[in-house]
């Protein structure tokens, strides 16, 4: 246990310089983009009521004429206190904006993760059990197609087929006026979540397949067979359970793809989440928002890989020795 704690601490300490470098790069990027830094600190309403004389004083006061590195440290300090600046286009504090958009993105991401985990591990394990069969080959080809089709193209095809031609599901958006009940809401979720989920499935499937093949060659599986256990028991209880642990860990590795994918999917389906806001912010040259969303997505990925490291260390004690 003490060992684990030491490992966790070591990993945490290693993350600090990473976070510093990343925030530095983000601030550098913010500095390179056009725009007056004072507008990142005040909402536009406030800014309009300040006379230029006062603004120049403020510039001095807030150290905007300071060297770059000092400005960076001050910005970082503000960040740590939870002041993320203001969106240029509508003057809303970025913190409030993100808090408002986050639930939508979370909902879509969780649904996509659920779909890809269930579908990917079930298909992967089935194809490992029937290795070399027609079904396995078909799934391999399907997996190859899955990682190769552009997500937005897949989304477009789904919109045309299921929303426009068949009319089963709405084209996009998250809510409709006068909508009540979870069921009506679910209709909006199905299409984007399936597209995002299915496009993530291929990776999980490949991983689950090779992991299951690995497990099925282990000695304890042979022992289980030798004991005369029925085949389904060997597969499900002995093989499946063990090979699934890395698949759970894989959720962490899928996060970068998930975040990138959500930008594309949220844009096509007009889903009011962070990915959609990111795209709009880039097009509208709303740099403070762009940088903040980028920063948070990196931090999310770092956190996920940190958790994955810890989880693997707990599941497999050998990792800590490295």
């Amino acid at each position: 246990m003490r060992n684990t704690l030491q490992y966790v601490l070591k990993k945490l300490l290693l993350m600090i310089p990473m976070v510093l470098v990343i925030t530095f790069l983000i601030y550098w990027g913010l500095d390179l983009t056009p725009g007056d830094p004072i507008s990142y600190m005040f909402s536009p309403d406030q800014l309009a009521n300040i006379d230029p004389q006062k603004l120049a004083e403020m510039r001095e006061l807030y150290g905007l004429n300071d060297p770059f590195f000092i400005r960076y440290l001050k910005w970082l300090w503000q960040l740590l206190q939870g002041n993320f600046g203001y969106s240029i286009t509508n003057g809303v504090a970025i913190k409030d904006l993100l808090a408002q958009l986050f639930p939508a993105t979370l909902e879509l991401s969780l649904a996509a993760l659920l779909i890809s985990t269930v579908l990917g591990s079930v298909l992967g394990i089935l194809s490992a059990l029937k290795k070399g069969s027609v079904g396995d080959n078909l799934l391999t080809v399907a997996g190859m197609i899955g990682v190769s089709i552009p997500q937005f193209f897949f989304g477009m095809v789904c919109i045309v087929v299921f929303a426009l031609n068949l009319g089963w599901l709405p084209i996009g958006g998250r809510t409709a006026p006068g909508m009540t009940g979870a069921l009506a809401h679910l209709k909006f979720l199905i299409l984007p979540a399936s597209v995002l989920g299915i496009s993530l499935t291929a990776g999980v499937m490949r991983y689950a397949r090779s992991s299951m093949l690995d497990t099925m060659n282990k000695d304890y599986i042979k022992t289980a067979r030798a004991k005369g256990l029925p085949e389904w028991r060997v597969n499900l209880v002995h093989g499946f359970r063990v090979s699934l642990t890395p698949v759970v860990v894989l959720i962490g590795f899928r996060l970068p793809t998930l975040i990138g994918g959500s930008v594309v999917i949220e844009t096509i389906f007009q889903w009011p989440g962070i990915g959609n806001a990111f795209k709009t912010a880039v097009t509208g040259q709303n740099y403070p928002l762009v940088m903040m969303i980028a920063l948070f997505s990196v931090l999310a990925v770092l956190m996920a890989s940190f958790l994955v490291d810890i989880l693997t260390a707990i599941l497999d004690p050998r990792v800590k020795l490295e």
Binding site: P17, V21, I22, G261, M291
Partner: peptide, 22 residues
């Protein structure tokens, strides 16, 4: 190595779009 880790910890598409905007 650390520098490459920094770049790789960004979600690919986010980094590409962010750099694109700059």
């Amino acid at each position: 190595l650390r520098l490459s880790e920094v770049f790789m910890s960004f979600p690919q598409l986010i980094l590409v779009i962010m750099l694109g905007s700059i």
